[in-house]
């Protein structure tokens, strides 16, 4: 195929004077997952809404399966399956009725839609709950039903807007497995997420956006190399002690201060004991010491420190809609 399934070129969308999406370009090839990573309000959902024809871009182009979102929205709608942040199903209908409803809206016959619904319920582990009203489903079941509803009729492109926000780890794993299967079957998948871990688990490539702009793009490995592996976070609430600790840790490269926490990049696990010894040597007692694999916060911290100073973007727990 000459053209990627999703092809975005210099996309721009403003609300009033504020550019929500500013000059965003990237592409997603068939059979691959691309993660669009960013904090709340970074412009992820605006990008998604432009791609799914809910919004019209101010300038730039977005082509999905060869259809331009501005000149051929009907073609786009026929080629793209969308699963939003909130499970968009009818709560009064049963899971099965929901799937039949969406299937028939996509021009399946009544029997065709029923057969497909049964198949999808089975595939997403919802057969037993199939005849229960969707309003009685757990969060994880609802998300699976929502994803199943997007797949009633095979389409070449799937857009997932924060599909696992608020899910427990097991439901999240089940959803990840489903997404991997779909990519293997040849779908082009664009996934927005606030979690590096999720992008890492699913995406071949990650596009990091902040304040409407692409600030980094690459494979998960490349991005994490920028951050530099795990970090040791030393929490010392007393400002004077913290200043002394900064001195004691001067031998470590790239120590940063975030609120009352000193973030020490680690090159190996053996560095932990070196850090503790350094603090001990200065007779300092940390309130808390923790070792973390790089988080999205760290990625952002590393990527945005140049143009934002020490103030990193605020991530919340993902309850709000960005």
């Amino acid at each position: 195929m000459a053209e990627a399934a999703i092809e975005i070129d210099r996309l721009r969308k403003s609300f009033g004077p504020k550019a929500a999406v500013d000059d965003v370009s990237f592409s997603v090839a068939a059979g691959t997952v691309v993660g669009l990573l960013g904090p709340n309000g970074a412009g992820k959902t605006t990008v998604i809404n432009c791609l799914t024809t809910l919004l019209t871009p101010d300038s730039g182009t977005a082509r999905l399966a060869g259809h331009d979102v501005t000149t051929d929205p009907a073609g786009v709608r026929a080629s793209v399956a969308v699963t939003g942040q909130f499970a968009a199903v009818d709560e009064t209908l049963t899971g099965r009725e929901n799937l039949v409803f969406f299937g028939r809206l996509l021009r399946l016959t009544r029997t065709g839609a029923s057969a497909r619904a049964a198949e999808l319920l089975d595939q997403f582990g919802l057969s037993e709950a199939g005849d229960m009203p969707a309003g009685h489903y757990s969060g994880g079941m609802r998300r699976r039903l929502d994803l199943a509803a997007s797949l009633v009729v095979p389409r070449p492109i799937l857009v997932l807007d924060e599909p696992t926000t608020g899910l427990d780890p097991r439901s999240r794993q089940a959803l990840w497995d489903a997404v991997r299967r779909l990519a293997r079957d040849g779908m082009a998948i664009l996934l927005t997420t606030q979690y590096l871990e999720e992008a890492d688990a699913l995406a071949e490539r990650i596009v990091v956006i902040d304040e409407g702009r692409v600030i980094a793009e690459g494979t998960p490995k490349e991005l994490k190399k920028d951050v530099g592996g795990s970090v040791c976070e030393v929490q010392i609430s007393d400002a004077g002690d913290r200043a002394r600790a900064t001195g004691a840790l001067a031998g470590f490269v790239g120590v940063k201060e975030r609120d009352d926490v000193l973030v020490v990049p680690m090159r190996g696990t053996d560095e932990l004991s070196a850090i503790v010894r350094a603090l001990d040597g200065a007779a300092l007692k940390a309130d808390d010491i923790a070792v973390h694999p790089p988080t999205l916060n760290d990625v952002f911290f590393a990527l945005t420190k140049d143009h934002r100073g020490s103030e990193g973007p605020a991530f919340d727990t993902g309850e709000g809609r960005s």
């Binding site: 399966a65 073609g75 026929a78 080629s79 009818d90 209908l93 409803f101 028939r104 809206l105 996509l106 021009r107 595939q123 797949l151 009729v153 095979p154 389409r155 070449p156 299967r181 779909l182 079957d185 040849g186 779908m187």
Partner: peptide, 28 residues
């Protein structure tokens, strides 16, 4: 799943598609 190569919504006449949609939505 089969390979999702084809687009959904085979080109049905617009009027027929409209009636189908109204019927399905109204049934719900």
């Amino acid at each position: 799943m089969t390979a999702p190569a084809a687009s959904a919504a085979p080109a049905a006449p617009a009027g027929q598609a409209f009636l189908n949609d109204v019927q399905v939505l109204a049934e719900r």
